[in-house]
Design a protein around this nucleic acid. Structure first.
Lengths: 153, 153
DNA sequence: GGAATATAGTTTCCTAGTCAACAAAGGGAG
DNA sequence: CTCCCTTTGTTGACTAGGAAACTATATTCC
């Protein structure tokens, strides 16, 4: 209830608009990626590997905000597509190492361009100043809540 | 690739921060709703019914940005919880009418309060001015892309 | 060194969606 | 009226992910 004793409207909440816009952006990006036969989660994993390779699955789980189980299956799919390689960690009998394959490494700049285009398309309606404001505010919220992973959904 | 010929960073994209913050807010709200044995999607359907009752499933599908199949199953769950009623539309042999049950109608203000609290908690780190800015910018993006549904995930 | 504990990855079961096929009912053209 | 196409809701097959149990390996503590 709000101060008037009436139930607050759904659209009164910033969370409502966040979800709507975020969903739109993610969905639009997913559509772009379709042509490359890659999902958003797959892209995020490839992008993480691109910056820090090789990486253990449990580290990816932390960075991507997913469970180890999900990472295991996601890696399965990327290995099946020959975009990622999985090998044993010589230093730890339990651990694996995930890395981009040559094909995967070759694909990353392609996908990064799609990500750039998607961002430009989604936020192109804003002025440069508004984009700066939005960026600052989002980072402030993320910092206030200690967010650090890169969520995929 | 960006102007330097390097692959743009994941965190360069506004979409990245949008997703991270939006996910956090939705997840926090889901946790709050757990105690009431209601999911976010269930809440959104109840909230829609609260403002326009009775409503046909296919209309809810439009408003909530979900398929008719998903609405069908979601309604099943809410009917099973006795929060929503499903009846035949006397004017159209194909159509149904969904409405809140008495228990459902009683629960809405409760859940609305949780939504208010969640929003306050998620965006309380911002100044009043920043909240206004964020609201304005999000609505501008939504308008620019013709978004009107109320996404649930 | 050996036992208890912790960690890494996989697997199974579950949930909540999509998509596509479907049956039932409506509506228009002839 | 009848045929044809559309619309409505449901269902079944499938997907991606979470939770928890499980196996194998490390590590720690005595």
């Amino acid at each position: 209830m709000n101060a008037n004793g009436t139930v607050s409207r759904l659209t009164d909440h910033l969370g409502y608009w966040m979800r709507m816009v975020s969903n739109h952006v993610s969905f639009a990006f997913a559509r772009r990626l379709e042509g490359k036969d890659v999902t958003v989660a797959e892209w995020v994993m490839m992008r993480e590997l691109h910056s820090a390779e090789p990486l253990a699955p449990h580290r990816l789980a932390g960075r991507m905000g997913m469970t180890r189980g999900a990472i295991s299956k996601l890696a399965d799919r990327l290995v099946a597509k020959a975009l990622v390689t999985r090998s044993d960690d010589p230093a730890d009998g339990r651990a694996h190492m995930l890395a981009l394959s040559d094909a995967g490494r070759l694909l990353v700049p392609d996908l990064a361009r799609l990500a750039d285009e998607n961002d430009a398309d989604a936020f192109g309606c804003l002025t440069a100043d508004e984009r700066t404001q939005l960026d600052r505010i989002l980072r402030k919220i993320a910092a206030a809540h200690g967010l650090k992973g890169s969520p995929t959904s």
